[in-house]
Amino acid sequence: MAETSRPAGPAVLAQNQYGKAENRVVRITRDGATHHIKDLNVSVTLSGDMDDVHYSGSNAHVLPTDTTKNTVYAFAQRYGIESAEQFGIHLARHFVTSQEAIRTARVRIEEYAWDRIGAEDGGHSFVRKGQEVRHTQVFHDGTSWQVVSGLGDLVVLNSTDSEFWGYAKDEYTTLPEAYDRVLATEVNTRWRYGWTGEGDAPDWNASYAETRRHLLEAFAGTYSYSLQQTLYEMGARVIGERPEVDEIRLSLPNKHHFLADLAPFGLTNDNEVYLAADRPYGLIEATVLREGREAAIPVDLTNL
């Protein structure tokens, strides 16, 4: 490629990228009278030899973002959507290998799940699931791969088996100690797979389902003295049970439930009636790593 000249002056172009965000694609697979739905929100980001377009406006190395959009829909037809991870891999490989100027591709995907309404409809009526959103990010630089998956907006609650006491106090502390409290949170998590392109890829769908199961079982099965303890148990359970996962990062807002004061009405409240407060809220975040493992390609797991 020709050497790029930049305008004179102290300014120099640094990290840059471009792409098409939030391509909403629904793929319906018709298996006779039974239909299957994959509902994705796909964002593609490309980077590489893009100095000329910034310095002089030359678009010679720029693949239009409209082309990126078209590729998403064409690939949904050509390859189908077995999993969000595999679909992202198809896209990332295509952009890096088909355009000399493109050196890296990042594909971020949100997947929205649907449940069947009933068998009597012949298998083609669905209701949108309201539990969580599945997330995937695929990063490819022509040699290495990084796949980060996760979920968000999964609200969980333990109505007992949670305490919070013995904490540091100062002159501004008013929170009473709790020996039997409601523990509720919204699970937002990302996990990084150890697979970097060598050997067989994980079964993405099975891995997602099992990781989700372990997160929920750890939350339900932990007698909690702090949300931090619960977070660690959830992450450690995934690392211990899913060998394909090397790192998991969790962000857990504490959805506070305060006992309602019913004394003015002459009523007792034996841990039965609560005020659910949506803000302000405590926010507990941490990463649990497989010992001895490091990220091959740095990525912000909290901003997937």
Rank of each mutant, 00 (worst) to 15 (best):
19 G>F: 00
23 N>A: 09
83 S>D: 10
213 R>V: 05
217 E>G: 14
284 I>Y: 05
142 G>D: 06
133 V>H: 15
190 R>L: 01
160 T>N: 11
303 N>R: 14
182 V>W: 00
156 V>W: 04
110 E>W: 01
122 G>K: 14
154 L>K: 10
215 L>F: 14
258 F>N: 06
207 S>L: 07
119 A>W: 03
163 E>D: 14
200 D>Q: 07
214 H>M: 06
294 E>C: 08
44 V>W: 03
183 L>P: 01
133 V>W: 11
19 G>T: 02
204 W>H: 14
29 T>H: 13
195 W>M: 05
163 E>G: 10
157 L>V: 12
251 S>V: 14
141 D>P: 06
59 N>F: 07
139 F>H: 09
114 W>K: 02
136 T>Q: 12
295 A>Y: 07
236 A>F: 03
101 A>D: 04
235 G>E: 07
240 G>M: 04
302 T>A: 14
137 Q>E: 14
40 L>M: 09
196 T>N: 06
271 N>I: 10
70 N>V: 11
232 Y>M: 06
156 V>M: 09
224 S>Y: 00
63 L>C: 08
91 L>E: 08
204 W>R: 01
116 R>T: 04
54 H>E: 05
92 A>T: 06
268 T>A: 11
277 A>H: 08
112 Y>A: 10
2 A>S: 11
134 R>T: 13
286 A>E: 12
126 F>N: 15
54 H>F: 06
302 T>H: 02
